[in-house]
C-alpha cells in the first residue's frame, strides 16, 4: 500500500491526521497535526500531554518548537 516516499512527503501526507509527537525529554503529545514548517515546528489541535504514559495536560492548540522534537508518528487514535 504505502509507496516509497521521502520524509517530507510523509509529513505532508499526515497533516490533519492524529499523531504522536515525542520530544527529547520523553514527553509525548497526542493530537491532530494542524501543520508544520521546515524547522519542524509543529501546530497541534486537541493536544494531550503524556509523561510516563500518564495524561498530564490538555491544550486546545499547541505550538511545539521544532528543536525539541524526537519523532512524529501517526497514531491509531
Amino acid at each position: 500500500m504505502s509507496r516509497r516516499q521521502n520524509p517530507s512527503e510523509f509529513l505532508k501526507k499526515i497533516i490533519g491526521k492524529p499523531v504522536v509527537v515525542k520530544l527529547n525529554s520523553g514527553v509525548d503529545y497526542r493530537g491532530i497535526l494542524a501543520c508544520l514548517d521546515g524547522f519542524m515546528n509543529i501546530a497541534l489541535e486537541q493536544t494531550e500531554e503524556y509523561s510516563n504514559g500518564q495524561l498530564q495536560n490538555k491544550y486546545g492548540d499547541a505550538f511545539i518548537r521544532g528543536n525539541n522534537v524526537l519523532y512524529i508518528s501517526t497514531s491509531t487514535k
Partner: peptide, 13 residues
C-alpha cells in the same frame, strides 16, 4: 529567549 521554549499554547479560540 526562544531557545528555552518547548511549547506555546494559545487561549482556547
Amino acid at each position: 529567549r526562544g531557545d528555552s521554549v518547548i511549547l506555546v499554547s494559545p487561549p482556547v479560540r
